[in-house]
Structure formats: structure tokens, C-alpha cells
Design a protein around this nucleic acid. Structure first.
Length: 733
DNA sequence: GGAAAGACATTTTTT
DNA sequence: ATGTCTTTCC
């Protein structure tokens, strides 16, 4: 391992409080460096320090490109660098932000109007739905959401499972039509979706040598955080950006790759050495975050994955409390158990904001919220419906988008009749048909509404809307807040909310005001910020960017939202088959491995205390289901667990008042004729016993070796597919 | 064209 | 159980 030969004066303090592996990561002079940083090993710290280090070694800050997963991470990085001389010049942002940056400047070289608008998922769906109507396509054969998923899948360069089955009769034909129309529609209206931001950036660098040369010249060192969650297009972007004389550093942890469904490929980080010549790596394995029991339990879970990078985390912390595993009768019980546990921790001196509850799917928050409300425990939901996704906020932004880009069809459709101005579905469709036939943008068709056969009433509404746009377009593009105000007043949007008797509209009005306040703040802070950069900011902020610690409340969030965070006390709810792993991932190895990583990510957020709960029965929209505990729990060594059972019949609810209830018998150990690793000794038709599902009949054995999977028809729980490796089946003779 | 009532499907995670 | 889409009626 080679490190820099000498240290410039003044840089030593950057290394003082680092361990030797971290130092190596910070000072390494490899052309391409992969830092594999396990959970809680000081990854962000190493990355920030490395940037600082490079700068103190003489690299000009503006020659540094730092790509992070969220805007929050980028802001954090910038904040820390500001203290360095010239540190403010670093370009830090997300992949999508960088793509947007490139295309705004050079998009015209590849036929993209630099005034393009960024479409989020909602907008994409509305464009697609309009296409269904225009092309007279039934939604029955292929749902818009699935078509969209497939479009995105294709844009991301395939990889993994296609979201829809194109071999189904008629599907491929319809999909092709939708796909082509979608692409064409976006291009025609200067709209880019998230995927386009990356894809077109790659195209730009590929096709325009001078642009590529310009940025290869400018960025001498590229750093990427959370590399395990990059997709193929992002990797290509980096490869085009990083020429032979540049350096690249990527940081990540393959065990925390949890965005496969969005196109991320773990192989990116595993294959880093092949993608970037002369790559070297540094392993960060010392965990500073968790107690021995928590880390040991998490490691035991993740070890079972096959596709991983060899590493073994260790901690020098005490073992601490065992992982508390609570078996609950149903969701209601689980909610109460969670609330009781929060109270216990608070009694022991924890603050509410030191506690977090994680779940696999957002829908699970409901039951927990109810229970916390019952006990008057303050909480905050992280993510959920995010501010910029709210209907009213999107409405106002759509107005603003039409000022910036008059051809923004998605925005036009959204607000043309909000508030009501007599332009209903029929009028919109007439207008659209008219525009389509003449290859016009919707807004260009609007003045010719009469030709399009739009009714007189609707024409009046359109007229008023167009006048508003003309008026506001005459305003300067900065500051932003007055533009929003003018739109709110001129459209009657605010007045409609103010006059409404609906409670919901009340809070909508507040959100609208909050948006204006946000714009004011933007105006004050961003000296060069105009409407376009404001809209860009609004389009590219993520849920995770909104998280604030120190709220004095318990945090509730999905495991995905928890990525990158840490809490002294963590509860994981719903640790059951169906959630961990999620039902939809079953039957696909890569998917199941990701589910395990997800559980691992959840566990490793915890610093001091970790509690896991599962319910044996759960109410779904189809009725009541029996739930087996998550197989991942079975992988936690018994001596790191403390079990509690609230599902036995005798006085379960009284147990809430005595948290130290006695445990139930652990599942039988693998002694008697337990079959693992291979299917040897088990035959189809045989009766078998599963520790949680109970007795059943073996119906099918598929695959071989460690990947063998079996189908068992359980007497009580019905037919299940299991990975033999994890199933712990016993023969019942 | 619009509001209200009813049908309907819907649940993974989101830059 | 909820929110979204469709139908129905004014």
C-alpha cells in the first residue's frame, strides 16, 4: 500500500484522529481507489477528509468533482470544506444534479434545449396516461406504472429482471407504442426524466469530444460516495468523464446496496478494478458505531450472502445489551410493544430523538403511529408524502414550470383546469388531438382553441390562463418569490384555497405559503439563482434531504430512508416473511440477497440498543394472514438474542407492563437429521417439519447445491417456496 | 362540464 | 382501509 511520500505542512491535523486504514484511504495516491467501507466505519469522514487532504496537497478545489447520493450529503460535504482555503470551489452534488449541470450548459450540442424541464415520477405518469388516451390504449393489458417501470428499466441499460413480461400476448406491441410515443413526447416538449439526465449526459460526452475534453481537463479528481448504489449508466458516465490523466476515488459498501430495483448493480463496486485501470483498494473494517452484540448479530445475518466482498467488521466496544426479539400476536400488539419499548428506553434516560423505528414498507407506519399516539409519544415520520410531492406544491411548481418552459406538457395538463376554469377533459382532449395532428406544443395549440373545436366556455378559461402567462413571462426570472406570488394571485389558486371550507385546503394553503417562503429563502441565499435553478432544486431534492435530527421526537421511517443515518436505539418492526424478505422479491436470488442487505442496513443503524419485532398474524387488505418470522432472525446467534413472546395465550397484554418477561423456547437446533446445503436425503412427497411453518409435504425440489429451493405445502400455512439453504427442514418419518 | 357516489384495485423500496 | 378511477346524474 503506497501513501503519499510527504505531507505538506498544515495537513497533519486532517489525519490526527484517524485509524491507519482511514489514513490510507485519505492519503492513498492510487489513480483509481476503491474504499470499501463497512457500516459505521467512518466512510463519510474518510471521504470528506480525502477531499480536504487533496486540496491541502495542492489540488485546486474547482478541480474536484464530488458526487454523493443525496443533496444533503453534498451540502454536508460543502459545509465541511468551507473552512478550508478555497474549499468552497468544489463541485459537489448528486449524479442527477451533475447531469443537469452538464446538459444545461452543453445540451444543445446533442439537441437538447437548455431550458428543459425535469420530470418526476408523477409527471412521467401523467404524460404516459395522456398517451394511453391519445393512442386509445386500454390500461387492462399493461398498467401505466408497469409500462413506466419498463421504460426506465430499458433506459438504465437493462440489468436484472425486467419489470414486465414482454412475452405476454399483446404486451410487447403495446409497450413499443407507448415507449416510442413517450420518448418522442418528452423530446418534443423539452422534458427530461431522471434517467434522461444521466443517459443524455453520457451521450453528450460520447458524441462531443470537445465537451468531454473540457471536463476531463477541469476535473482532475472525481470522488463518488455510495458507489454500491450506482447503475450502469452512472458507471458509464464516470468512465467517460475520467480520462487517463485523471483520478477517481469511490467509496461504498456492497453489503449496503439496496437500490437494485432502481437499476443499481452491486457488480459496479465488485468490478471496480476491471472498470478502472490501476485500481487499488482500502478496506475500512473497524466499526465505531455499534455494540458487540449488535454488530455480531448483523454480521451473522449478512455472512449468508454469496455475492459479497470479503470483509469482516469488528468493534472495540463492549457487547452491550443483547438484541431484543419480540414475537407479537398481531400488528396491534406490535405497535404496543414498540411504544412500550420506547417508554422503557426513555425511562432509562434516552431522549425521544435518539430512538428510531424502521419498517420495510411505509404502510406499516400506521399501526405504530396509532400506538405512539395512544401513549402520547412524540414522533416524526421521515419521508412518506414529501413536501415537494404534495399536490398543491406540485400545482404551484407546474405554473412556474410553464413560465420557464412554455412547452412543458406535463405541467400544462396538470394545471390547465386547476383551479376550475371550465376546461374539462373533453376540451383538453380536443386540444391535444389538434396539437398532435399538427405537431404543436399544447401551449401553442391553446391560442387556436377555436380551430380545435373547443367550446366557448373553455376558450374563455384558456384565454385567461394565457394572459396570465404572458404577464408573468414579462417579469424578470429572479427573484423567484414574486413570480410565484403573481401566479398564485393571477390564477386564483390562492383565492380558491382561501375560500374553501375544507380542512384539507387549509393545510394546503399553509403548504403553498411554505413554498413561497422557501422561494424567498432561495432568493436570499442564492445570489445567482433564477427561476430555472429554483425549479431544478425542487425537482432534485429527495426525501432523505429533509431529515433533521434533534427534533425531540421518535423517528419513523422505511429502511431505505434510514440509509446513512444512525441512532442510539433502533426498533425494526415487521421482521416477518413477506416483509423481510418482501414477498415480491421471492424466487429471485439477487432479490433475496438484497432483502438480506436491507435487513443488515437496518440493524447496523443501531448504536447501543436494537429491538426487532414480528407479528404472527397480520391484517392485510385481503384479510388475515399468518406470518412466519423473518428467516434473517434465525441467523442471529442465540447468545446475542433476548427473546420475548407476547403471542402466547396467557395474559399477553399484561406483559406490556413488565418488559422483562420470560422468553420462549428457541427453535430446535440443527441436530436431528437437519438437511442443509444440499437436497440430499429429501424426496418429493416426503413429510417434513419446518421450525416455524410446522409440518407439511415436500412438493418440489428445484436447482442444485446451495441454491436449491424447495416447494413445501404446509398443513397450516399453505404452499411456500423456500431456499433449502435457509429452510432448516427436518424429515418427519 | 362538474360534482357526487360508487367501484376498484392497491401495498416495496425512490433519485 | 384508502385513495384513485369510473360512472351517474344534474
Amino acid at each position: 500500500m503506497s501513501t503519499s511520500p510527504y505531507i505538506r505542512p498544515g495537513a497533519e491535523h486532517l489525519l490526527e484522529d484517524l485509524n491507519s486504514a482511514q489514513r490510507a484511504a485519505v492519503t492513498h495516491d492510487a489513480r483509481a481507489l476503491l474504499v470499501v467501507a463497512g457500516a459505521g466505519t467512518g466512510k463519510t469522514r474518510a471521504l470528506t477528509r480525502r477531499v480536504a487532504w487533496l486540496i491541502t496537497q495542492g489540488l485546486p478545489p474547482h478541480a474536484v468533482l464530488a458526487i454523493t447520493f443525496t443533496n444533503k450529503a453534498a451540502d454536508e460535504l460543502k459545509r465541511r470544506l468551507v473552512t478550508l482555503p478555497g474549499g468552497g470551489g468544489v463541485w459537489a452534488g448528486t449524479f442527477h444534479g451533475f447531469g443537469s449541470f452538464l446538459l444545461r450548459r452543453h445540451g444543445d450540442a446533442v439537441g437538447i434545449d437548455p431550458r428543459f424541464t425535469i420530470l418526476d415520477r408523477d409527471d412521467q405518469l401523467s404524460v404516459l396516461k395522456a398517451i394511453y388516451k391519445d393512442l386509445d390504449i386500454e390500461k387492462g393489458v399493461l398498467r401505466p406504472v408497469d409500462a413506466l417501470a419498463m421504460i426506465s428499466h430499458r433506459k438504465n441499460g437493462g440489468g436484472g429482471r425486467p419489470p414486465i413480461d414482454l412475452t405476454m400476448p399483446g404486451v410487447a406491441f403495446i409497450f413499443d407504442q407507448l415507449h416510442d410515443a413517450y420518448v418522442e413526447r418528452l423530446r418534443g416538449a423539452d422534458l427530461l426524466d431522471f434517467d434522461d439526465l444521466l443517459l443524455d449526459s453520457v451521450r453528450l460526452l460520447e458524441e462531443c469530444d470537445d465537451v468531454a475534453a473540457l471536463y476531463r481537463e477541469r476535473f482532475a479528481h472525481v470522488l463518488v460516495d455510495e458507489y454500491q448504489d450506482t447503475n450502469l449508466v452512472q458507471r458509464d458516465l464516470l468512465r467517460h468523464l475520467v480520462g487517463p490523466h485523471q483520478r477517481i476515488t469511490v467509496v461504498g459498501d456492497p453489503d449496503q446496496s439496496i437500490y437494485r430495483w432502481r437499476g443499481a448493480v452491486v457488480r459496479n463496486i465488485l468490478d471496480f478494478g476491471e472498470d478502472f485501470e490501476g485500481a487499488e483498494q482500502v478496506l475500512l473494517e473497524r466499526n465505531y458505531r455499534s455494540t458487540g452484540h449488535i454488530l455480531g448479530a448483523a454480521e451473522a445475518v449478512i455472512e449468508r450472502n454469496r455475492e459479497r466482498h470479503a470483509k469482516r467488521l469488528y468493534t472495540e466496544r463492549e457487547d452491550g445489551q443483547r438484541v431484543l426479539l419480540t414475537r407479537c400476536r398481531d400488528a396491534e400488539d406490535e405497535g404496543r410493544a414498540v411504544a412500550a419499548q420506547v417508554e422503557t428506553w426513555v425511562r432509562q434516560g434516552r431522549r425521544h430523538d435518539q430512538i428510531a423505528v424502521f419498517y420495510r414498507i411505509n404502510a406499516l407506519s400506521r399501526g405504530i403511529e396509532l400506538a405512539l399516539n395512544d401513549r402520547r409519544i412524540p414522533y416524526v415520520i421521515v419521508a412518506g408524502t414529501e413536501f415537494f410531492q404534495r399536490r398543491e406544491v406540485k400545482d404551484v411548481l407546474s405554473y412556474a414550470r410553464l413560465i420557464a418552459n412554455p412547452r412543458d406538457e406535463a405541467a400544462f395538463t396538470r394545471i390547465v383546469n386547476v383551479p376550475r376554469r371550465g376546461v374539462g377533459a373533453t376540451s383538453i382532449q380536443r386540444l391535444r388531438d389538434f396539437a398532435l395532428a399538427r405537431e404543436l406544443a399544447l401551449t401553442d395549440a391553446a391560442p387556436r382553441a377555436e380551430e380545435a373545436g373547443v367550446s366557448k366556455r373553455a376558450r374563455g378559461g384558456l384565454q385567461r390562463l394565457l394572459e396570465l402567462f404572458a404577464k408573468v413571462r414579462a417579469m424578470p426570472r429572479a427573484p423567484v418569490a414574486p413570480i410565484l406570488e403573481a401566479l398564485l394571485e393571477g390564477s386564483g389558486y390562492r383565492a380558491t384555497l382561501e375560500d374553501s371550507a375544507d380542512d384539507l385546503d387549509r393545510s394546503r394553503l399553509e403548504n403553498v405559503d411554505e413554498l413561497v417562503a422557501y422561494a424567498r429563502e432561495f432568493d436570499a441565499k442564492e445570489a445567482s439563482g433564477d427561476l430555472q435553478s429554483f425549479l431544478e432544486r425542487a425537482a432534485l431534492v429527495s426525501d432523505q434531504d429533509g431529515y433533521v435530527g434533534e427534533s425531540g421526537r421518535v423517528s419513523l421511517m422505511s429502511v431505505h430512508a434510514a440509509k446513512g443515518l444512525e441512532f442510539p436505539c433502533v426498533l425494526i418492526a415487521g421482521a416477518e416473511m413477506g416483509y423481510f424478505p418482501h414477498a415480491r422479491s421471492l424466487g429471485e436470488d439477487a432479490g433475496e440477497e438484497e432483502e438480506r442487505r436491507l435487513f443488515y442496513v437496518a440493524m447496523t443503524r443501531a448504536q447501543d440498543e436494537l429491538a426487532v419485532s414480528h407479528a404472527v398474524r397480520r391484517q392485510t387488505y385481503m384479510g388475515e394472514e399468518h406470518r412466519a418470522p423473518s428467516p434473517y432472525i434465525l441467523d442471529i446467534p442465540e447468545d446475542r438474542l433476548e427473546r420475548r413472546d407476547l403471542a402466547t395465550w396467557s395474559g399477553a397484554s399484561s406483559l406490556f407492563d413488565q418488559p422483562s418477561a420470560t422468553g420462549y423456547a428457541p427453535p430446535p437446533d440443527d441436530d436431528v437429521s437437519v438437511v442443509r446445503e444440499t437436497g440430499l436425503g429429501l424426496e418429493v412427497g416426503e413429510r417434513v417439519l419446518h421450525p416455524y411453518f410446522g409440518p407439511g409435504r415436500l412438493e418440489e425440489v428445484g436447482g442444485g447445491g446451495a441454491d436449491a429451493r424447495v416447494t413445501v405445502d404446509f398443513d397450516v400455512h399453505g404452499r411456500k417456496q423456500l431456499l433449502l439453504r435457509h429452510a432448516r427442514l427436518e424429515r418427519l418419518s
